[in-house]
Amino acid sequence: MSDAAERLAEVAANIAGAANRAQRRPGDICLIAVSKTHDADAIRPLIAAGQRDFGENRVQEAAAKWPALRAEAPDVRLHLIGQLQSNKAEEAVALFDAIHSVDRSSLAQALAKACTKAGRQPQLFVQVNIGDEEQKGGCAVADLPALLDEAREAGLAIDGLMAIPPADVDPAPYFALLDELAERHALPLRSIGMSGDYDSAVMLGATHVRVGTALFGHRG
């Protein structure tokens, strides 16, 4: 096995173990390989090993490297996991299969127009600032009901919630809160968990985990 295949198998086994402990089906959890800042040569081994969902932070970076990779692997699914400027909505709708960072009314309106123009809508997640951190994107927990209403009134289908817990604290309470919020608003998907805590996220309801270092390895 290649290094990439070994890393992918290890992460998949960890996800399956956490899912089984939570009495969930491992197949219900989507593993997103966070390929931001990695070039095509670093990504190809994971595609060859069978990975099909990849996450990018920036529209421009994804637009530069993914058309060629998708020509080689047309069944790859791209997820935008970073902040999105409203003026990039049209480009994002054309390029991504899922957008995890809907966090304000103006972006919802821009995405609605872009989706209508393109005749397609990516899977959409509202990002919640679950730790109420000034430096992080995401809508405030208190503003979530209004943003969901505004998105739906604009014609968008919201599929789930996304959050990044504060660093250097136990993420479990934040994962549990996001799961509760998603349940309260009848949203089936929860995008939570990264390389250091994805097993905990799976135990607490994650349907999508965003894993970078554990799949691509540490930079030299």
Rank of each mutant, 00 (worst) to 15 (best):
K36V: 12
K36T: 08
T37Q: 13
T37G: 11
H38D: 04
D39R: 14
D39C: 14
D39W: 09
D39F: 07
A40L: 08
A40Y: 01
A40P: 01
A40H: 08
A40N: 14
D41C: 10
D41G: 11
D41R: 15
A42L: 15
A42H: 09
A42R: 13
I43D: 00
I43S: 03
I43F: 07
I43T: 08
R44V: 14
R44C: 02
R44A: 07
L46F: 08
L46T: 06
L46E: 00
I47S: 06
I47W: 09
I47F: 14
A49L: 08
A49G: 11
A49P: 09
G50F: 08
G50L: 06
Q51S: 07
Q51H: 11
Q51A: 14
R52N: 01
R52C: 00
R52W: 00
R52M: 03
R52K: 07
D53F: 10
D53Y: 06
D53H: 12
D53M: 02
D53A: 13
G55K: 03
G55N: 02
G55W: 00
G55S: 04
E56V: 04
E56T: 02
E56D: 11
E56N: 09
E56G: 08
N57S: 13
N57Q: 12
N57R: 05
R58L: 08
R58T: 09
R58Y: 15
V59K: 05
V59M: 06
V59E: 06
V59W: 03
V59R: 05
V59H: 06
Q60E: 15
Q60C: 10
Q60K: 13
Q60M: 11
Q60F: 10
E61S: 05
E61L: 07
A62S: 11
A62D: 07
A63K: 06
A63W: 09
A63E: 15
A64L: 12
K65T: 07
K65G: 08
K65W: 11
W66Q: 01
W66E: 02
W66P: 00
P67S: 02
P67T: 06
P67F: 03
P67L: 06
A68E: 15
A68M: 07
L69Y: 15
R70E: 05
R70F: 00
A71R: 14
A71Q: 15
A71F: 10
E72C: 07
E72A: 14
E72D: 15
E72F: 04
A73C: 14
A73H: 12
P74L: 07
D75N: 01
D75P: 01
D75T: 02
D75I: 00
D75E: 15
V76D: 00
V76G: 04
R77T: 05
R77E: 08
L78P: 00
L78M: 08
L78D: 01
L78I: 11
H79K: 07
H79N: 03
H79S: 03
H79W: 05
H79V: 02
